[in-house]
């Protein structure tokens, strides 16, 4: 089995990056409408912006960048029914907007003062 050969403690980042590439490819392939492809990439970009904001000062950050880029590459490869240029543009715009809104605290990460867990 291929899973037995993976050294998870060393290669988890690459493995997950490949996994997200496949996920992006499959999602883009299954979305047979240009409109839904653009809408999906916009929400995916917003989510990636949030993830990047949450991890921006935490190390390691590079594996998460790899996963985001992996998803984007997979999505671009699978976008047969939409313009790849606009997919990339929408992702970048949505990523930047989401990151900026988090930075300015218009969008926040859930925080509960009394929360104990």
């Amino acid at each position: 089995m291929i899973f037995d050969k993976i050294k998870w403690d060393e290669q988890w980042a690459e493995t997950f990056a490949v996994f997200f590439t496949a996920v992006g490819f499959v999602i883009a392939l299954l979305l047979r409408s240009a409109l839904f492809t653009y809408l999906s990439v916009i929400v995916a970009g917003a989510l990636a912006g949030r993830l990047f904001y949450a991890r921006r000062f935490a190390q390691p950050i590079f594996p998460f960048v790899m996963m985001i880029v992996g998803f984007l590459v997979g999505y671009l490869l699978g976008s047969f029914w939409a313009s790849r240029f606009w997919v990339l543009t929408f992702f970048a715009l949505s990523f930047g907007t989401s990151y900026y809104l988090h930075l300015k605290e218009f969008l926040v990460i859930f925080k509960k003062e009394l929360f104990l867990k």
């Binding site: 999602i27 999906s40 929400v43 989510l47």
Partner: peptide, 13 residues
């Protein structure tokens, strides 16, 4: 939020 994105994308697919 991740769940909301997942449900939206799954709904589109």
């Amino acid at each position: 939020w991740v769940g909301i994105v997942v449900m939206l994308v799954l709904g589109f697919i």
